[in-house]
């Protein structure tokens, strides 16, 4: 009996501690930022959001994130396909390398791109002689975004390809379908949910990216200043309300994407 009482106290203590931690660490800060953005009323919020530079930075971020997502959807689908379907020397190594962008500090990623594409590097000079610059311009930002979001599409398409029953493909062949037709009518539809959810996660991550971008973007207001760097600037210049307003805009967008991905996944697995 004492055993029971003791365990009841313990479990009560554990439960409250874990729930409190959860609420304080996750729920509170998120509520806090929404509260702060609206602390000056709706008008102040709208003013902050529609401020020319702020709005431009958001649009730029969304545009570049979309470009990098499209690139990643293409590369990622190809890579997932190759890594699952083909056997070749070095496959395992490449497969492990996929996770590298997740493991690498984003500041290090930024530095890598800086070194590789800078004006003194061969690539930078090559681009220069062709008449455009990569570093501190939009291409550099896209490259940074592509790098940090590289694993998402691959990692969400791979399990689907693994699950895909070979007999489905064989059935298509027995019905006389050509390989190309089989790919587009049988295999691609199977991969599509993975490509979509991976792309959405990549998009949301690209919107949020800071470390890799801040070092390579040049951060010229109105031209290469993306939203997260804009927020950082507002914090540095002691304008938390302005920072919070843009943050809320980005957050809501990301939450929406996350929610859609979750919704689609639960629908798919039927849980």
């Amino acid at each position: 009996m004492t055993n029971m009482l003791q365990s009841r106290w313990w479990s009560w203590g554990f439960r409250s501690a874990v729930l409190l931690y959860f609420v304080l660490l996750i729920v509170f800060p998120i509520l806090g930022i929404y509260g702060q953005s609206l602390s000056g009323g709706w008008h102040a919020f709208l003013d902050n959001v529609t401020e020319a530079l702020a709005w431009k930075s958001v649009l730029l971020t969304v545009k570049l994130a979309l470009i990098s997502t499209a690139i990643n959807a293409a590369i990622g689908t190809m890579a997932a396909w190759v890594l699952i379907r083909y056997r070749f020397p070095g496959r395992r190594l490449l497969n492990s390398l996929v996770d590298l962008p997740f493991a690498l500090p984003t500041a290090v990623v930024g530095l890598m791109i800086l070194l590789l594409l800078g004006p003194r590097s061969p690539i930078g000079q090559g681009a220069e002689s062709l008449g455009f610059t990569i570093l501190f311009h939009e291409p550099a930002i896209v490259i940074a975004m592509v790098f940090v979001t590289f694993p998402f599409v691959i990692r969400s398409v791979q399990p689907l390809l693994e699950e895909l029953d070979a007999s489905e493909e064989e059935a298509a062949y027995t019905m006389g379908a050509s390989p190309a037709r089989t790919f587009f009518r049988v295999i691609l539809p199977c991969m599509l949910p993975g490509i979509a959810s991976g792309a959405m996660l990549a998009f949301s991550r690209a919107l949020a990216e800071f470390g890799a971008v801040v070092l390579v973007a040049g951060n010229i207001p109105g031209k290469t200043l993306i939203a997260s760097v804009y927020i950082f600037g507002e914090i540095e210049s002691d304008n938390p309300a302005g920072a919070a307003a843009i943050s809320v805009l980005l957050l809501t967008l990301s939450f929406l994407i996350l929610w859609i991905v979750n919704y689609v996944q639960t629908r798919r697995t039927g849980r």
């Binding site: 800060p29 949020a208 943050s247 996350l258």
Partner: peptide, 25 residues
């Protein structure tokens, strides 16, 4: 709660930092 757990994934690190500053600055 299960969906709230994922939120930090969707939050830009800068915004995460801002939250802490706003709450405990």
């Amino acid at each position: 709660m299960n969906s709230i757990v994922d939120l930090p994934f969707a939050v830009s690190p800068v915004i995460g930092g801002l939250m802490i500053v706003l709450l405990m600055g």
